[in-house]
Design a protein around this nucleic acid. Structure first.
Lengths: 153, 153
DNA sequence: TATTGTTATACTCTATAACTATA
DNA sequence: TATAGTTATAGAGTATAACAATA
């Protein structure tokens, strides 16, 4: 009987946990993000890096990681990917030769803009059921939660 | 100069994206969940399975997966882990011999209760900065977003 | 000593494809 | 033919430890 579709199962204690709903909503966004940006080959985390580098030309690799909650060790592979795709350029800092300075290439700037347009449409679709007031409320509430010491993007 | 602590870097366009804040908040919850339940060896996804099975004794493995957005293939390993730890018991359904019926063992019931107490404290800490009204608002808003066809936990 | 970037490695979660046994 | 469970495998994100170069 194919008419059994979605049986609406009771999820128990889970229903009262904010962490669970946060996880489901976040994953839903991630899935739709991947769908919306499939053509660009840009994923959520690399996009976040592009956004931070664009806002801070010459920023060090480590500083980008700290801003996004990405560990040093994991930044390496992510940056290499962006450099290999010619979206980000690396240069040695003169002041402190331990630092690697990052900046967007022309292609990186163009890609960021193109992605942003796709992401705006994706967000609009995902937030569809929310009024402008509710969207502001959501942002404010999430901000209060995540405004701490966290690691990890 | 160690006083540079958290340089408050501008994250650019990211700051206006609900998906980004959702991801950060969700990850923050996941990290603290792992910390709070470290002693129990129970992770977010296995806990979700325990919760659904507890609320629906005898439910099939596939139905649990559909309720939580976990794919059939991925349910297998997760259920095996819970069975190996004697938290969940499997039995063959009489009506439809393709189905595997799941139920909590006594140990599973006890573990679920113990985890829930730890999770309540963890949620209380994570939602600390939110008033009771704001918590209800957050739940309602997340519910509106995730109330769709999604897959994936 | 402390920090940056790096390498190596492991674990969790998620995804797809193909197989079997039942229906 | 369709579904449930399974197996195998891969990709993405995140975690820790240890090393070299530099401060």
């Amino acid at each position: 009987m194919p008419s059994e579709t979605a049986a609406k199962v009771d999820i128990g204690a889970l229903a009262s946990l904010a962490g669970y709903h946060l996880r489901r909503a976040s994953t839903a966004f991630a899935v739709d993000f991947a769908r919306a940006l499939h053509g660009t080959q840009i994923r959520q985390v690399p996009f976040a890096i592009l956004s931070v580098v664009a806002a801070n030309p010459g920023i060090s690799q480590g500083a980008v990681g700290r801003a996004l909650g990405i560990q040093r060790a994991n930044m390496v592979t992510l940056v290499i990917e962006l450099v290999d795709r010619d979206l980000v350029a690396r240069s040695a800092s003169n002041d402190d030769r331990r630092l690697v300075a990052l900046a967007l290439t022309a292609a990186g700037t163009a890609t960021l803009a193109a992605c942003l347009a796709l992401i705006r449409a994706h967000e609009e679709a995902m937030l569809g059921p929310l009024s402008p007031l509710e969207r502001r409320q959501l942002s404010a509430l999430l901000g209060k939660i995540a405004e701490r010491d966290f690691h990890t993007v």
